[in-house]
């Protein structure tokens, strides 16, 4: 598994063409791999390295810097509970503890059925709705313990599939292609 599919290689080429330097496409390509497989394994990194003329070590160095890139398999639902200051003041840790109890895992573990991975995260920029969390980077605010239980049930039952796609799918809209491709990008004067 885990090399990019032919279709994703095509997408990768389009992404690379948006940037003046191909290495800039590294984060977007890692997302592409994560979208494909839900996480990023070694062969995906090697393949991306090939596409960008980077060594796998260079890809790994960048990939491992960012918390959103998962280099281990995660559940279909990544539950990210914020405990940073605004949430802390409004019950973020209590929510996290409740989540551990409800899911039967501790932070950074995945439920045995592969449905949920629980993580504690830094401020999600949704502080007016503290305590808040994300599932696959989709926001849920003012989450009470009951809300959480319902949320888990709904997710498990697939009732939220519309709002919460599988882990790895960050952006279901395609950003527009750029009008000035790399090939005719202005260099030097006269941009």
């Amino acid at each position: 598994m885990a090399r990019l599919t032919q279709e994703n290689v095509e997408r990768a080429r389009e992404i690379i063409s948006r940037y003046p330097a191909s290495r800039s496409a590294l984060l977007p390509l890692l997302y592409l791999a994560q979208e494909q497989d839900g996480w990023i394994d070694d062969s995906a990194m090697e393949h991306i390295g090939d596409l960008l003329d980077l060594t796998p070590a260079q890809v790994l160095g960048t990939c491992s810097f960012y918390t959103m890139f998962k280099r281990q398999p995660v559940g279909r639902h990544l539950v990210s509970v914020c405990t940073n200051i605004a949430c802390l003041l409004n019950g973020g840790y209590e929510l996290l503890e409740h989540a551990e109890a409800r899911l039967g895992v501790v932070v950074d573990e995945t439920t045995p059925d592969g449905e949920f991975t629980l993580e504690e995260v830094e401020c999600l920029a949704d502080c007016d709705r503290a305590p808040c969390l994300q599932v696959n980077y989709r926001f849920f605010g003012n989450v009470t313990h009951d809300d959480f239980d319902r949320l888990v049930d709904d997710l498990r039952a697939g009732r939220l599939a519309e709002t919460v796609p599988a882990h790895g799918v960050l952006n279901r809209e395609q950003p527009p292609p750029v009008s000035v491709r790399r090939a005719d990008a202005p260099h030097g004067a006269g941009d």
Binding site: P20, Y66, M68, A125, N171, E173, Q174, P175, P176, V178
Partner: peptide, 29 residues
């Protein structure tokens, strides 16, 4: 500032933001 290429570095966790922004960019083009 006379530039023809701008980059919008958007926080990764803003999934909805990415979707809304992608759509808006397409519309704007």
């Amino acid at each position: 500032i006379k530039c023809t290429k701008a980059f919008l570095y958007l926080r990764g966790e803003f999934a909805l933001g990415h979707e809304r922004m992608s759509r808006a960019l397409r519309e704007a083009y």
